[in-house]
């Protein structure tokens, strides 16, 4: 169920865009910024407020890779798999992290919602390849070993 606070926040975002239907993507982006994902009840609320059918909102939300319908972890780890990072072995890093956290291509977040592991196409930091980011902080020239060390450090930071 939605709290009043969530409804108010969503309405505020919709008003900011003058309730324009064409602003749907911008509205979704701001909602996602707030909650780190797009909660279903909130999308239903946006649907009735903006008079856009739920099916259409679902269409938009599933089309763009950047939108997530599932809650994301506290630490979002993005592994760059652009050309430069790929040839400098980014996939072994991805595999090492997935194996350590019991994740896969379908399952991106750990059950305790501490970590989310996903790939991105290019972070624009090819000189530092292979690159990963944790909540937008960049870590350069990673290897599977340093990635796992980083993971441990993050776990310690989170108190686990």
């Amino acid at each position: 169920m939605l709290t009043n606070c969530q409804i108010e926040k969503a309405n505020e975002i919709i008003e900011k865009h003058q309730r324009k239907k064409s602003a749907l993507i911008a509205v979704l982006q701001e909602v996602q910024k707030e909650y780190r994902y797009l909660p279903e009840p909130l999308l239903m609320h946006i649907s009735s407020e903006m008079e856009i059918s739920p099916a259409k909102i679902f269409s938009v939300a599933t089309f763009y890779e950047n939108f997530s319908l599932e809650p994301k972890g506290k630490y979002v780890i993005k592994i760059c798999d652009g050309t430069a990072c790929h040839v400098r072995k980014s996939i072994p890093i991805l595999n090492a992290l997935r194996k350590e956290l019991n994740l896969s291509e379908e399952k991106h977040s750990t059950d305790d919602l501490l970590f989310t592991v996903e790939t991105v196409s290019c972070l624009g930091a090819c000189g530092l390849a292979p690159v990963i980011t944790v909540n937008d902080k960049v870590y350069a020239k990673m290897t599977p070993k340093t990635a796992l060390e980083l993971l441990q450090a993050l776990q310690k930071e989170a108190g686990k």
């Binding site: 059918s53 739920p54 259409k56 679902f58 269409s59 089309f63």
Partner: peptide
Amino acid sequence: GVGVLGLAYRGSKIKVTSAF
């Protein structure tokens, strides 16, 4: 004016489905 169906996902995963 009902709109219960839409195209969701994309590429080879695209499908016609209702919301969620």
